[in-house]
């Protein structure tokens, strides 16, 4: 698997798309620091951006890479290599290289700005981990979509749709639901609904960092327990990791049955 991972990884590292992605984050990092002129402010803006951007880039790149590397995949399939090894290698290759672009692209400007010496370093590292986890989740979702769809236009469409769904539509429906049923106790429901969307989950992790004062203003005992103790952080992280593992499991299952 390491071989496949290495080939995919270097294949991607050489492609102009990972440069594009890297340069994009580099530019974003410098722009935010320059415009805000304040480390905490830049990190807060970035936290808001990351939860939306990394899933978008993860899905789009995931689908694109899967379709573009179809020849490579077929070549590998005829070799004495396990199927799961091939797909895991490719998956880790792309998710890894995207995460690396993210970490380097943002890391360089913030290091240059002196994030290491500021009190924001934990927040910054946390932000990078959050972004990397989202990348792994959404690349996996993209792989599942591409495995199910031979037609690349369709696959691409579904990828955009799944991003749009998790990033915007889900929260819209969520909000409408909360407003319509506002007379009922909703705290358990809202926590459960949050757990089912990886973008909401990582947003909750951000909220736990930035908005704990506001979150504790809410009366519900379930909220209080969730946000007021380490449980919130623990549960959200656990669910996020689960969100990583489950799609990978599905990839492994689906790839065994697919014809090439």
């Amino acid at each position: 698997m390491l071989n496949i991972l290495r080939y995919s990884f270097f294949d991607l590292m050489r492609s102009r798309w990972s440069y594009f992605y890297f340069v994009f984050y580099l530019a974003l990092g410098f722009a935010l620091l320059f415009l805000n002129n304040s480390l905490p402010k830049a990190i807060i803006t970035l936290m808001n951006l990351i939860v939306v951007l990394t899933p978008l880039i993860g899905t789009v790149f995931g689908v694109m890479y899967f379709y573009n590397s179809r020849e490579f995949t077929e070549l590998l399939l005829a070799q004495p290599i396990k199927r799961s090894t091939i797909f895991m290698g490719q998956y880790l290759g792309i998710a890894g290289s995207l995460s690396l672009s993210l970490v380097l692209g943002l890391g360089i400007p913030f290091l240059a700005y002196g994030v290491m010496l500021s009190g924001e370093i934990t927040n910054f590292i946390f932000l990078l981990i959050d972004g990397a986890l989202l990348t792994f989740i959404f690349v996996a979702l993209a792989f599942i979509l591409s495995l199910y769809n031979e037609n690349r236009i369709k696959g691409f469409g579904y990828a955009i749709l799944i991003w749009l769904f998790f990033a915007v539509i889900y929260d819209g429906l969520f909000l409408i639901f909360l407003l319509v049923f506002e007379n009922y106790p909703l705290d358990k429901f809202s926590l459960a609904a949050t757990m089912l969307n990886p973008i909401d989950l990582s947003r909750i992790l951000v909220l736990l960092k930035l908005d704990i004062s506001a979150l504790l203003g809410y009366t519900g005992a379930v909220f209080q327990q969730f946000f007021g103790t380490a449980m919130g952080l623990f549960l959200s992280t656990f669910m996020l990791v689960l969100w990583c593992v489950l799609p990978v499991g599905i990839i492994l299952r689906v790839c065994k049955k697919k014809d090439f």
């Binding site: 050489r14 020849e71 077929e74 005829a78 004495p80 396990k82």
Partner: peptide, 23 residues
Amino acid sequence: NGKWEYRNDIDYLPQIARFPDNL
């Protein structure tokens, strides 16, 4: 079926020669 080690004994020439373009 479902195994992979046996492909060590097989050489294969696919019908259409498709390779990763940037290698």
